[in-house]
Amino acid sequence: MGFKKGKIIGLAAILAMAVPLSLPMTVGGQVLELNRLSSLYEGVSFDHDMHIEATSENCTTCHHHTAGTPPEDPNCIPCHMNSGEAESPLCSDCHAAEPFSAANLEKSYNTPRLHHKAKPGLKAVYHLNCLTCHKEVGAPDGCVDCHAMTDKGEKFYRTGKYAPAPGKASGHH
């Protein structure tokens, strides 16, 4: 969405050079393939190191408190001020890929005092986390800026080679 490709590469290069060696990295590589949900779009190549730098090493920006840093949201503080590091900081460990599956709905019905009842699904938190921030800092925020549309996606969105024949966009006379 108006973001120049050259600019991204340039920015990435600068950030890459600035990455110090002493980061508290617990993941293997620098670039993660977020492709668990890929269907209409291909997976996202997520440059974790770059984002560590971009957030000035503040893990809370993305990971709430699960990476060990104290939470910032006042609603989380009362419980999670001293929660410490979670067993795993992966989004998918807390956020269900199918938030409204029968099992999840059942759990929410049968657990009256269940916390985080309104916890968004995995797809939602990826987008809410990434896209919201991208929009704020002026990073790329178009769908295909992060992940290319698959053939299935083109069929779904009736675009590309599945686009409707032009010239009949009339609706009413």
């Binding site: 549309m149 009736r158 675009t159 599945y162 409707p164 966009a169």
Partner: peptide, 20 residues
């Protein structure tokens, strides 16, 4: 995306313009 999903799920006719 919701519009596209609805179109597919309900078997609705082709839209006038793509959903993207």
């Amino acid at each position: 995306t919701c519009e596209a999903a609805c179109n597919v799920e309900q078997g609705l006719p082709e839209p006038d313009i793509p959903f993207d």
